[in-house]
Amino acid sequence: MIKFIWPIDLILLKEVDSTNKYARKYVYKKKNWIIISSINQTKGIGMGKNQWYTEKGKNLTFSIIFKPIKILPVKKRYIINIITSNAIHKTLLNYNNNNLIWIKWPNDIIYDNKKIGGILIENNIFLQNVHSIIVGIGLNINQTKFNKKWNVSSLKKIFNINFKLDKLFFEIIYSFQKEYFLFITYGENFIRNYYINHLYLKDKNSLFYVYKTKSYTKGIIRSITDQGFLIIEIKKKLYFFFQKEIKLILS
């Protein structure tokens, strides 16, 4: 059994529509590090109006509820996404370190150009600071059948082995706590640099759809700003984009 940095309070559900929705009732509880996990999530929430589809008992779908120990201003809320992405990425590297696992801005985990996981973060704000956070995580683990239109995969399809869900679940939670500990100990740049170095398609020519102009453009992902904006070089000029302002088009 993994020894966590901070004690957790685990709530295991047989079935729920969304662990993030269920977690909202615990946001104002005094306890910290409450984990909501479900064997079957029927209507997982993705970014915007997207949904996360998962097969019963074969994947990981859970939410982490915690209150920042260190004051986190609203403008720095992107850091939680950095922490979560890094934690998942580092955990998966323990299973296969072949440079095919990437972090796709802003909230996806990619293996060999296919999505294997997603992150959804909900922040509760008080006096311009983040008071409490719900971090929703969905990872395709042992599921093997997917709609071809989704361009997704799973760890089992990739490595051709069955994964122990409980073991991986606790490893990710520990990795999340460790990454948060690194943040409060060494600061924002320490964890941000890791994220930037593992950005999907960084420094490569890519195709994007810009929602404001309703047009496609070619560009190169260069980095992210200290507020989480994606920096893209277009025609030798740098442009900053926030979530839902631009979409990376995969071939």
Rank of each mutant, 00 (worst) to 15 (best):
L127A: 10
L127M: 15
L127R: 15
L127G: 05
Q128C: 07
Q128P: 11
Q128Y: 15
Q128A: 09
Q128R: 14
N129L: 11
H131G: 03
H131A: 07
H131S: 02
S132F: 11
S132W: 03
I133Q: 01
I133Y: 07
I133F: 02
I134L: 14
I134S: 02
I134R: 03
V135Y: 04
V135N: 03
G136F: 02
I137A: 06
I137Y: 07
I137D: 04
I137V: 15
I137W: 02
I137Q: 09
G138K: 11
G138I: 13
L139C: 13
L139E: 01
L139W: 05
L139N: 09
L139Y: 01
L139Q: 11
N140H: 09
N140S: 10
N140W: 09
N140E: 12
I141C: 11
I141V: 15
I141N: 03
I141K: 01
I141S: 09
N142S: 09
Q143E: 08
Q143M: 04
Q143A: 00
T144Q: 03
T144N: 08
T144A: 04
T144Y: 04
K145N: 08
K145M: 06
K145R: 04
F146K: 03
F146P: 08
N147W: 05
K148I: 07
K148E: 14
K149P: 11
K149V: 13
K149I: 12
K149Q: 12
K149N: 13
K149Y: 15
W150S: 08
W150Y: 10
W150G: 14
W150E: 12
V152H: 01
V152R: 00
V152F: 11
S153P: 12
S153T: 15
S154H: 05
S154Y: 06
S154R: 08
S154K: 00
S154I: 03
L155W: 09
L155M: 14
K156D: 05
K157C: 12
K157F: 05
I158P: 14
I158W: 14
I158L: 14
I158N: 14
I158S: 10
I158V: 14
I158K: 15
F159R: 04
F159T: 04
F159N: 10
F159P: 07
F159V: 07
N160Y: 12
